[in-house]
Design a binder for these strands. Structure first.
Length: 550
RNA sequence: GUCCCCGUAGCUCAGUGGAUAGAGCGCGGGACUUCUAAUCCCGGCGUCGCAGGUUCAAAUCCUGCCGGGGACACCA
């Protein structure tokens, strides 16, 4: 498909140059049309170039169509259409070569060097280690992980990173909650639960773990040092749980970076000192302010409070400076919707430190509502009631959960239909796709059990319309992956895979594979293998399994 | 009040400045002595929130307005 696009593009450019308009070559784009009826490929070059060439678009299109129809080998037909579009129909046997490409390239099919080896750091989830992972973390995990897979397939070198907030106030609060739970576990009455201390039942488990690890624990009074120690223990305990749940979800991180380590390395002090040296800090009202407004932020931000403590922004600023210093060309953060006020100041920081601000990309992962039978399933953090990622995985399974999260653009709030995700039928899109792989495996098993002459498959035999539909879908795959990487849009893949599976099911229903003439069988087996290969690659980029039978 | 995201079919949502705006669900009809019917086929005029603007061309870009959600601490 790429070959055809560039061949047509080159021919158009050549034609323009022959006409003395080589400068218009940049307008010679060739696209895959959104819907059928407009050929396999389309170009709007005539509409774009008409003005410069002082010719009506339709006339231009007719002239070009005639030229291209006879000058581009894989084009079966080129025609002018509508207000001046060029539509191309590719020769089916040429299209069928994609089956060979897929076989020869194996796992490399669809890979590209779009990213040119640039290094990318994708930070996501980074949930506070003070409680279980909630549903929206699952969405971030699915998107971040899949984006990393897609970018790695597209010539980037992407790493996944989890930032552990284990040095802030919330750790202290966790420690305080653990302390109270420990007292409870010992049968001590603690009266009313204090305001602002995590009430969640889940803290009890961590408190119990601490007692097991420290049977000698005897403190009867609280205090910051004790809360801190308990909090550290609890935070690491929750972090390990997060790591395990995410691993079960198919998501692993190359790096875990701890806020506490950054603090121990004096990273916050250093970043404040650097900003001061660069002249981006002023003092007012006893506090130190980052002059971010002049760098595009809404207003200046406090770095050091009048009591001498850092704001939350400082360790985070230090962390982001460090990301670029570690040699990453692109830094991508997946953040919750409550963080979007953060974008301005982070951009300002990156600019102040001399890094390219547009290489910090912040994706907002919007909230998830659980819905069943049209009713919203309540999830409330207040009162310690959670619907956790772990519960969701138990409920619907990894594959549907990942698919449903990846199906939608990440920056729009989504409804997660529990009933649909649990359905083991074609109504459930992930089963629909997996059913295609199971069907193909089944056919291939039976084929291998048979005895056949050693035939070479013949591309010309894949000429039926429904075969062609599959071929065309297969040929589109590399373009889908490349665009998903460039647009940071994993959601292109679920949609594409649904279309490919649909094309295959339609073909399968209409045509026999195994008991046809040997040459036909051979060609269709090749088509099945190629389809299985692309479905597997695509599902792999989503982190979804490829069942051999269902 | 300022800023950000969203507004597309009954519902949930895709949609890359291009042509007659698509998919899944739901609903109705049809197709199984055949490789998995867990499937396939047929059925879609919807003020792309509204109004302007830019463009040969706008759901898409710009401006304003309306509606929904969120963010706007010397909290983290």
């Amino acid at each position: 498909m790429d070959d055809a696009r560039s061949a047509i593009r080159d021919s158009i450019a050549q034609w323009l140059e022959d006409k003395g308009h080589g400068g218009l070559a940049a307008e010679a784009s060739v696209d895959i049309p959104t819907e059928g009826g407009h050929g396999d490929l389309t170009s709007s070059v005539c509409l774009r170039a008409a003005k410069s060439l002082k010719t009506a678009p339709q006339a231009l299109a007719r002239e070009l169509a005639e030229f291209l129809g006879s000058h581009v080998p894989m084009v079966a037909a080129a025609e002018a259409a509508g207000p001046g579009f060029l539509n191309f129909t590719l020769q089916t046997p040429w299209l069928a070569q994609v089956v060979n490409d897929i076989r020869v390239q194996g796992p490399a099919y669809g890979r590209s060097d779009t990213g040119q080896g640039q290094r990318v750091l994708i930070e996501f989830v980074s949930a506070n280690p003070t409680g279980p992972l909630v549903i929206v973390s699952g969405r971030a995990a699915a998107v971040g992980d899949s984006l990393a897979r897609i970018m790695n397939a597209s010539g980037y070198r992407a790493d996944r990173e989890f930032y552990v907030n284990n040095a802030g106030n919330q750790v202290m609060k966790l420690g305080q909650a653990m302390f109270l739970r420990i007292l409870e576990l010992r049968g001590q009455a603690i009266g009313d639960w204090p305001e602002g201390v995590y009430p969640g039942e889940y803290v009890v488990d961590v408190a119990r773990q601490y007692l097991q690890a420290h049977p000698e624990f005897a403190a009867e009074a609280g205090g910051e040092a004790l809360f801190w120690e308990l909090g550290q223990f609890g935070a690491e305990s929750f972090r390990k749980v997060h790591e395990a749940v995410l691993a079960a979800f198919g998501v692993t991180f190359e790096h875990w970076t701890y806020e506490k380590d950054l603090r121990d390395q004096q990273a916050p002090e250093q970043v404040v000192a650097r900003l001061e040296a660069l002249g981006f800090v002023r003092e007012a009202d006893g506090a130190k302010w980052f002059l971010s407004e002049q760098l595009g932020d809404d207003k200046d931000r406090v770095l050091v409070k009048s009591d001498g403590a850092y704001t939350y922004f400082v360790p985070d600023a230090a962390y982001h400076a460090q990301k670029f210093e570690r040699g990453y060309d692109w830094v991508i953060d997946l953040l919750g919707p409550d963080h979007h006020g953060y974008i301005g100041r982070m951009r300002a920081l990156v600019t102040a430190l001399g890094f390219p601000a547009d290489h910090l990309e912040i994706m907002i992962i919007q909230l998830v509502r659980l819905v069943r039978d049209g009713q919203v399933v309540r999830m409330s953090k207040r009162g310690g009631q959670f619907v956790t990622l772990e519960q969701l995985i138990d409920e619907v399974g990894v594959d549907p959960a990942r698919f449903f999260f990846l199906e939608r653009a990440p920056n729009t709030p989504m409804d997660f239909d529990l009933g649909l995700a649990e359905l083991k039928s074609s109504d459930n899109p992930v089963f629909y796709i997996q059913y295609a792989t199971a069907r193909i495996h089944s056919v291939l098993r039976q084929w291998r059990e048979g005895v056949h002459a050693d035939l070479v498959w013949e591309p010309a035999l894949l000429s039926q319309p429904l075969e062609r539909r599959v071929l065309f879908a297969l040929a589109r795959y590399p373009d889908i992956v490349r665009r998903a990487a460039m647009d940071r849009a994993p959601q292109y893949l679920p949609k594409y895979l649904t279309e490919l599976a649909q094309a295959f099911h339609a073909f399968y229903r209409q045509h026999r594979i195994l008991d046809e003439a040997p040459a036909i069988t051979m060609a269709r087996i090749a088509l099945c293998e190629a389809t299985l290969s692309v479905l597997s690659l695509g599902l792999g980029l989503l982190g979804i399994s490829v069942p051999e039978q269902m």
